[in-house]
Write a protein that binds this DNA or RNA. Sequence first.
RNA 1: GGGUGGGUAGCUCAGUUGGUUAGAGCGUCGGUUUUACACGCCGGAUGUCCUGGGUUCGAGUCCCAGUCCGCCCACCA
Length: 917
Amino acid sequence: MKAIELPKAYDPKDFEDRIYAMWKSGGYFAPRMDAAAEGSAAPAGSVSTSASPAAASSGESAVRQDPFVIVIPPPNVTGVLHMGHGLNNSLQDVLIRYWRMKGRPTLWVPGTDHAGIATQNVVERRLKEKGLGRHDLGREKFIEETWKVKEEHHAIISKQLEKIGSSCDWSRERFTMDEGCSRAVREVFVGLYERDLMYKGEYLVNWCPSCGTALADDEVDHEERMGGLWEIRYPLSGGGGHLTVATTRPETMFGDTAVAVHPEDDRYKSYIGRKVKLPLTDREIPVIADAYVDREFGTGCLKITPAHDPNDFEIGNRHHLERINVLTDDGRMNGSAPEFVQGLPAKEARKKTVEKLEAEGFLASHKEHSHQVGHCYRCNTVVEPYLSTQWFVRMKPLADKALAAWQAGELQFFPKKWENTYRHWLENIRDWCVSRQIWWGHQIPAWTCKNCGALHVLREDPEVCPKCGSSELERDPDVLDTWFSSWLWPFSTIGWPDVLDSNGKPKPGSDLAKFYPTAALVTGYDIIFFWVARMIMAGLEFMGDVPFRDIYITGLVRDKQGRKMSKSLGNGIDPLDVVNTYGADAMKFTLAYLSAQGEDIPMDMETSKLGSKFANKIWNATRFILMNLEGRNLADPADAERRIADRWILHRLNEAVKAVDAAMAAYRFDDMAHAVYEYFWNDYCDWYVECAKLGLYGEDDAEKDRTATMLIYVLEESLKLLHPFLPFITEEIWGKINPNREPLIVAPYPEADAARENPAAEASFGVLKELVTAVRTMRSEFTIPPSKDVKVRVEITGEAGDALAGTEEIAAMLVKSDDFAVAAEGESFEGSLAAVGRGFTAHVFIKNLIDIEAAADRFRKSIQKAAGLIEGKKKKLSNENFVSRAPEDIIAKEKESLAEMEDALERSAAYLAALES
RNA sequence: GGGUGGGUAGCUCAGUUGGUUAGAGCGUCGGUUUUACACGCCGGAUGUCCUGGGUUCGAGUCCCAGUCCGCCCACCA
């Protein structure tokens, strides 16, 4: 056959886009079920491997037929993909491609998230640049604008996912605010309401005055800040002194409705039940007793402001105190505060209040004080505890189910350590505030009748009040927390609730019936609470089953200093830059290689060189093989004679397959990547291809054909093995070798194969490697130029003879020797230096080329080292305790290794003596 | 305060149930431009496995104590 040309340089830009387009248009991303339904044929095997014995003998391992499904963690349409997405989607793609090749119907559902507050903020920021606010546009127009932003980012995100090679089924793409997902949200909201798991209540929520909305507890970031701690005197009504309270927020004192002391606090016991006068006002408030008060802290007197502090809110409930809100929803003092601060932002009001307290003699002290302050996780504004009416999901019943499912083993976390995090959160669950006072999102399906006051939560928009018939209905203006659609994602994306039959079961043949529950979730640990746990709750509540069985938690991609990548630090790297510089394969392989047990991954641009070098190696090894095909008649590899190197490399290949399978079962991406890397580079390239040069460069045409046949056969098996980790380059090469077959993406993955297992070949080849390395080391140490041929005689001193039989030519080539042979009986080794190995001594005739004293020195050193080791071993073996208590096989091993060492030492010593004489 | 992860080569990290002389990538040193690859090839060097104790015939691995980093959750006015 003709030589196949491969461009000299590996340049992923030449083919990555073309390959992706081929996969996409060929429909290879859709689950095989779809193809079967359309009657397309099963893929043919590779031409050169079509009669491979491997295919037939995979025997024992049962082939899985259940679908392998992943639903993508939907990226936010607030921006574009960052390196975290790069990692996440690269790993998902590895899983998907592996199982696709394994023959399971495989589906990866792509999609994006509307990201409520975050996206709204993006739009508001843009408006602000034009000097506008959202109210200038009005709700409808504003949402229109937001959709534009969504479309803009969605286009970029989709493009990026394609660029990094994600093999997701674009025909099934979803968005959290598309019609289907919106119906799911509505159904769930109403369903929860009907089950009394959704309620409306007045509650102290985390209020972001900048976003103008409530936030869930999880959406508040706490940061250490310096602030003040003021002590204020509250005069006792009717005279007789005062109580001094401490506060970090003096301006909220106008909302105080009590002063609390500890019931057992002797200092204050007598005051309980009396009243104090609230400074700067005319109000009197009671002194109450509550065990919450810490006697040690501050003065032991606590002012109670139920409307502005979560703990005070609880205390207020216990003592039925009035809640007086003194702030507006944009963080200013409202009408409940005295006139002199009304309308001022809280911070300024604080200053004024303190000044006035001081002027009027109420201020006892002031000092600096460091404490935690809550900030909005979207805009970083200081969050206010704020009294308002919100919608809540009653989480306890849902959390209990989620815990039970985990305890029953229906879910597995990888790595396992995250299970504690999951459990802990569920055990301490709080109700979830789901209403948000913004415009972008799913509007709450609740209406209040202005006429009769009835509240209606409905699946369909009502025309008139179902209770009184009035058309004066007002819809709740709020929208739902963005996670309220995300937590339905594993089933809303595949048809729920539209494909349910009248019994609430998925219709047979629907995606929901086929693909739920999904197989795996791949996500970061930062959203175990936000998302993972809630999806499990929703799945159990509405589908009666967990949404996925395996949860792989990735690490975070960090910079080289270990810092989170962030916009503000400017230390992020763009996955597209990586792809443009090194290619998608390089990025994917590098990330997998570095994904140790979900540990964080420190990386910069250079890091991806690792994968890039590997891809380059694959490219060049292939190029070498393909350029040697000229004039060759390739046979069926099943019929080709197997030499020692062939048996060995097939054994190594099989070991790599086994390693990948094992690592895959444990979601050890680093182990998978290491296994294929070592196999291909260290075994296939460094040894197998090097050995093959003997056959390729010889005179014997039949041997050339045989060598080429085996080379390309093993290469193709290797391409299959490598494909999930470097899909583009392997597909490109696969197509070059034979353009007239099904693409590699759907080729059968190599199965562990007992017929390839060959420990004997492994052992034999190991001896050859040891021999070659020993001679090379000697050459290197005595700086014999690589181009210089040397004479070598191998003295067989043990069992190495059988192993080395028939390998002389290969060995001669690999050590660069023009006169290489196993030593004859009684042959003289005059003029040589010896390399001592297990079962052999290689005599290298270079004495005339080197410094004898240096050589002797080398021997003395190695003998000294060996003697030390032997001494240690002897000591161990003569230890009564060891011999009597250690297992027999360990003792046997030790004895064997001692014998080997002693043998080698003896030979070295004899050689040294000869050298010195 | 409650959890939780970690300290192994110059750097970043592997090291599965305790068992030969502790590994990888990068870096480093020496040699090499041999017609696949200098993003290569060949060879070398480098470790109080945080500290101290314990269990064991045997500890990087198990136990205890200490120490130093990190993360998550909660939070006192």
